[in-house]
Design a protein around this nucleic acid. Structure first.
Lengths: 115, 115
DNA sequence: CAGAATCCATTCGGATACTG
DNA sequence: CAGTATCCGAATGGATTCTG
């Protein structure tokens, strides 16, 4: 169903309809960055991310990691050692999203500096 | 500067630092969708977008269009006719961002239906 | 170290009018 | 048609504090 709007079928059919769940998720603060950072630095620990971002509050980063993990985009592995260690990495089949998103970050970054 | 973290230099160096302006912008409701929709349907009128999204409030869409236009990502052309007509399209050199983003939307959409 | 919990200021965005 | 203005509830995310 939904045979309307087909200007050109370069990307088959993109749906612009409601704010989908994943997009919603990516709209939260540091979500895209977190996803891409994990993808690049994985396996990565909580503290590393905190350092990489520089000015994110622990509660925010924590929430974001929780969101992404719950959504199945990230994998969280906890090692019951002393001191505690937790590693995050991309879920196997979600790597592609990260590859889609990184160029966006790069684009944004370049625009900041160039513009 | 910044000679740390270089897992592979596929994308040179991606910055995960603060929430950059553009990312901030894209995080707003319907921002990504609006950008991609305009890219595909351009030149597109206000009402067309409203219809395409189906359930967006006029104030929200209006704000989004304003944001994106102000950021230089969209171009707004007003024709003083009766009835009034306004057309939106991507700014010349911003097309690439749309091309980066559409796959993300597609990914999200596919995940919704498949997952 | 890696968070969870709480509290709260700010913001966002939807609904609902109302214009040029 | 293409919005803008206003109002207001919901939600976000930062700071802070505390814990296994």
């Amino acid at each position: 169903m939904d045979e309307r709007t087909q200007p050109n079928d370069s990307a088959a059919e993109t749906c612009y309809c409601p704010t989908s769940g994943v997009i919603d998720l990516l709209s939260r603060t540091y979500a895209i960055q977190t996803l891409c950072a994990v993808g690049t630095l994985q396996p990565v620990r909580y503290g590393e991310l905190e350092t990489a971002f520089g000015d994110v509050s622990s509660s925010t980063l924590s929430s974001r990691l929780g969101d992404l993990t719950e959504a199945g985009l990230l994998e969280r592995n906890q090692y019951d050692e002393i001191p505690p260690r937790v590693e995050y990495r991309l879920s196997e089949d979600r790597t592609d999203l990260c590859e889609l998103l990184t160029p966006v970050l790069d684009w944004a970054q370049q625009r900041e500096t160039t513009d």
